[in-house]
Structures are given as C-alpha cells and as structure tokens.
Amino acid sequence: MPVFFGHPLTYRTYLLAKMYQKIVQLKPGFFLERMDEEIVVYHPTLTTSLYLNETGALVWQLCDGERTLAEIIELLCRMYPESAQRIGPEVIALLGSFVARQVAELR
C-alpha cells in the first residue's frame, strides 16, 4: 500500500497529500500563554481556547505563515528521526484540528 508520511494512502490522506504544499497560516489576533512546554491559545473573535501539549506547541510555533505543511513535517522528521513514522499522521491530524476549529487555514 502506498504511504504518505508514514500514513497509509487512503482517499482521505490522498486529499490531504494534495494539500501538503500549502502554507499553514494561523488566524491572527490570538492570545498565547506558555506554561512549561505546553501552551494555551485563545482566540477572542472565535472565543475558542486550545490546549496544546509539548508536541502541539512545537507544531504551533512552526506555523509561521511561511512554511508549508510538508516543510513542517520534514523539519520535525529531521529533529526526531526516531519518530518519523508517526510524525506525518500526527501533524496532519493536529493541523486538521486547527483548521476545524478555525484557528488556522491552509493557503
């Protein structure tokens, strides 16, 4: 079975694969509080709060409005080669949750 960043290439991941060259853009205007290695994000317009663990906080920081989804995944795979198999699916799921909660968009 073909794979995409360690994730079996289902129709859903195929659609995601088509988007992996897109840039991840966070919605501006959020408040952010770092607590140890975790962060809380609150968007006052959306009245949405988000808890991000250490991994989520790292992904959030990498969403700088310039990196593509693929670049974020590649960067994390280089930083954590021992976890490369699961980084792709995890980042896609995490960014999917950002998009679903409207705190980020792919452009």
Partner: peptide, 26 residues
C-alpha cells in the same frame, strides 16, 4: 491537570469575556 490544560478549560467557563480587553485570558 497541567496548568495549561486547566487554563484552556477555565477559558471555556469564562462568562463575561466580551467585557474585558483580553477576555480575561491573563
């Protein structure tokens, strides 16, 4: 719960955020 998880949960219980400049986040 870690302070960050507690903080996110507290924000969901904020009743008068619209009256505050930072919605009470700080």
């Amino acid at each position: 719960l870690s302070p960050a998880r507690a903080g996110a949960l507290l924000m969901a219980c904020d009743v008068n955020g619209r009256n505050l400049a930072d919605h009470g986040f700080g």
